Amino acid sequence: MTQLGPIVADRLTPPLIRALEQALDGPSQRVRRIEAGGQMVWLKQGESLSLRWRLQKGDTRRAFANDLDALHRLGAAGLPVAPILAEGLDFFVTPDRGRALSYLLQRPAEVMAEARQQMFAEAGRALAALHRAGFAHGRPSIRDMLWDGQQITLIDFERFSPRHNRVQDFATDLMILAHSILSYGRGPVPELEMALAAYRAADPGDVWATAQARARKLGWLGVLTRAVARLRPRSRDLNAVPLTLDRFARG
């Protein structure tokens, strides 16, 4: 039987430990939810792919290593990331920390306006805290920001790299956050301004100005994506590109 290795024993019940070991003995899955003994956690495993799939999906082993490295580094720095409850050579376990903001944004009836304002403001502050500590996320989509009713938890650091922690990388993070809100919101939504205002209030320095300058230089990309979007009018990601650039370009 597969052993979990080092674990935070006081956080995992015996039924959950058994369920995790059974899952690890079965076919590997990239991410899955495990629930037992009144607890729910997420199990993430490194993928072993054929050459064809590696060419299509990229180096998934490297992505897994980046994610694990980030959770260790950022957790040690006291940043709002998911804590690791158990880990092995090709897996790690984190607690459930609520719903993704992407899910909640698309279901406004489930969350009152005041709560939405709080959660998206916290998202902006969480990203700013990461940047103030000198780290870039790599791809801070709102599907990788979890809300438990009180705080934001950042997950999925597959593009994390200690070598890419410059102001330019922070600006990229900020623009990705805006793009994801515009994409999942299918256009400008109040939650975008909530997140951006909170980020700007805690801006670690020159990030907003860097994002503005980049957006203005990329005006041609907005024109191009608007043209392409006419061929794919239902593409949320395409439609969100010019909206993102416009938002930063106008200040």
Score class of each variant (00 low, 15 high):
Ala209Tyr: 02
Trp220Pro: 02
Leu192Lys: 03
Arg116Phe: 03
Pro233Asn: 03
Phe120Pro: 08
Leu85Phe: 11
Leu127Gln: 08
Gly222Glu: 03
Asp67Thr: 09
Pro14Ile: 10
Asp96His: 12
Leu85Ser: 10
Leu182Cys: 02
Ile84Ser: 03
Gly222Asn: 00
Gly219Thr: 15
Gly37Cys: 13
His164Thr: 01
Leu12Pro: 02
Ala9Cys: 08
Ser161Arg: 03
Gly187Leu: 14
Ala136Tyr: 12
Ala70Glu: 08
Asp69Lys: 07
Gly38Pro: 08
Thr210Ala: 15
Glu191Val: 14
Met145Asn: 05
Leu174Ala: 09
Lys57Ser: 13
Gln117Asp: 14
Ser235Asn: 11
Ala133Ser: 07
Met40Gln: 13
Gly46Gln: 15
Ala129Asp: 13
Leu16His: 10
Gln150Ser: 14
Gly149Cys: 10
Ala115Arg: 14
Ala215Pro: 14
Arg159Glu: 09
Thr172Asp: 11
Ala136Trp: 09
Ser141Tyr: 11
Pro80Asn: 03
Trp208Cys: 07
Thr94Lys: 00
Asp96Pro: 04
Pro204Ile: 03
Thr13Phe: 05
Arg116Asn: 02
Gln39Asn: 07
Arg230Tyr: 06
Leu24Gly: 04
Gln212Cys: 15
Gly46Trp: 02
Gly222Thr: 01
Gly149Ala: 13
Ala213Glu: 15
Thr244Asp: 09
Arg234Trp: 02
Val81Arg: 08
Glu21Arg: 00
Ala249Lys: 09
Glu35Cys: 03
Ala113Ser: 12
Asp237Lys: 10
Phe135Ile: 11
Val31Tyr: 12
Met40Ile: 09
Ala211Gln: 12
Ile152Asn: 01
His164Lys: 07
Phe120Val: 05
Gly187Gln: 10
Val189Met: 07
Gln212Gly: 09
Leu89Ser: 14
Gly251Glu: 12
Ser28Pro: 08
Ala109Trp: 02
Gly222Trp: 00
Arg236Asp: 13
Leu154Gly: 09
Asp169Lys: 02
Gly187Phe: 11
Tyr184Val: 03
Gly187Ala: 13
Met119Asn: 05
Gly124Met: 08
Gly88Leu: 05
Ser50Asp: 13
Trp147Cys: 06
Gly75Asp: 00
